[in-house]
């Protein structure tokens, strides 16, 4: 069993859902495949998707929804 850390490529504010009134893209325990959208990073008033880089099961998020994050910070782990 291997784990893959999904890291932020850019700094900004991390969101787990596409809009405040919508459900999370994914939740811990969900099966995920490469390319799935896991969240958004708001950077300089634009939104960039965070995509999954592995196939497996989503672990716990390491950051809160709407939390400021640094480039390179681990957002979530995928267990494959």
């Amino acid at each position: 069993m291997s784990t893959c850390e999904i890291r932020a490529k850019i700094p900004g504010v991390f969101y787990r859902k596409p809009a405040p009134d919508q459900p999370n893209y994914k939740n811990p325990g969900d099966p995920v495949v490469e390319g799935d959208v896991l969240g958004l990073i708001e950077v300089m008033k634009s939104f960039q998707e965070v995509t999954c880089e592995a196939t497996g099961t989503l672990g716990e998020f390491q950051v809160e929804d709407a939390e400021a994050i640094m480039a390179g910070q681990v957002l979530v782990v995928v267990e494959g």
């Binding site: 850019i10 700094p11 900004g12 504010v13 708001e42 950077v43 300089m44 008033k45 400021a68």
Partner: peptide, 9 residues
């Protein structure tokens, strides 16, 4: 200067 990501570009 470290450009913050929170405001316009």
């Amino acid at each position: 200067y470290q450009i913050p990501p929170f405001y316009d570009s």
